Amino acid sequence: MRKSFEFTLKSNKIKIINYWFGGIKLCINGDLRDFDKTLFAISNKTLLSANLDGIGTLEIKPLSGLMSVEIDAYLVKGADIQHVYSSHKRLTLKQKRLAQ
Rank of each mutant, 00 (worst) to 15 (best):
1 M>W: 07
2 R>W: 03
3 K>V: 10
3 K>E: 14
3 K>N: 11
3 K>R: 14
4 S>Q: 10
4 S>P: 00
4 S>H: 07
5 F>I: 03
7 F>C: 05
8 T>P: 00
8 T>A: 10
8 T>G: 04
9 L>E: 02
11 S>D: 12
11 S>P: 00
12 N>C: 02
12 N>L: 03
14 I>R: 01
14 I>V: 15
15 K>Q: 07
16 I>M: 00
16 I>V: 13
17 I>N: 03
18 N>T: 03
19 Y>I: 00
20 W>L: 09
20 W>F: 12
21 F>A: 11
21 F>K: 12
21 F>T: 14
21 F>I: 12
22 G>A: 11
22 G>N: 12
22 G>H: 09
23 G>V: 04
23 G>H: 05
24 I>T: 11
24 I>L: 02
25 K>Y: 12
25 K>C: 02
26 L>M: 04
26 L>F: 01
26 L>W: 01
27 C>E: 15
29 N>V: 01
31 D>K: 04
32 L>P: 01
32 L>Q: 08
32 L>N: 05
33 R>F: 02
33 R>N: 11
35 F>G: 03
37 K>R: 13
37 K>H: 12
37 K>N: 15
37 K>A: 12
38 T>S: 14
38 T>P: 03
39 L>R: 06
39 L>K: 04
39 L>E: 10
40 F>S: 10
41 A>H: 12
41 A>S: 14
42 I>E: 12
42 I>H: 05
42 I>Q: 08
44 N>Q: 12
45 K>V: 12
45 K>N: 13
45 K>Y: 08
46 T>G: 04
46 T>W: 03
47 L>W: 08
47 L>P: 01
48 L>K: 01
48 L>Y: 06
49 S>P: 00
49 S>M: 10
49 S>E: 15
50 A>W: 01
50 A>P: 08
50 A>L: 06
51 N>C: 09
52 L>R: 10
52 L>G: 11
52 L>Y: 06
53 D>R: 13
53 D>V: 05
55 I>P: 00
55 I>A: 02
56 G>P: 02
57 T>M: 10
58 L>R: 06
58 L>I: 14
59 E>M: 08
59 E>V: 01
59 E>N: 11
60 I>K: 00
60 I>P: 09
61 K>Y: 07
63 L>P: 01
64 S>V: 09
65 G>E: 14
67 M>Q: 13
67 M>V: 13
67 M>R: 13
68 S>D: 15
68 S>E: 15
70 E>Y: 10
71 I>Q: 06
71 I>N: 03
72 D>G: 11
74 Y>E: 05
75 L>D: 07
79 A>V: 14
79 A>L: 13
79 A>S: 15
81 I>E: 13
81 I>C: 11
81 I>N: 12
82 Q>D: 15
83 H>V: 04
83 H>Q: 10
84 V>C: 09
85 Y>C: 01
85 Y>Q: 05
86 S>N: 07
86 S>E: 09
86 S>A: 12
86 S>Y: 04
87 S>V: 07
87 S>C: 08
88 H>F: 15
88 H>S: 14
89 K>M: 10
89 K>C: 11
90 R>K: 14
90 R>L: 11
90 R>Q: 07
91 L>P: 02
91 L>R: 11
92 T>G: 09
92 T>E: 09
92 T>F: 04
93 L>S: 08
94 K>F: 06
94 K>V: 06
95 Q>C: 06
96 K>Y: 07
97 R>H: 08
98 L>D: 02
98 L>I: 07
99 A>V: 06
100 Q>M: 06
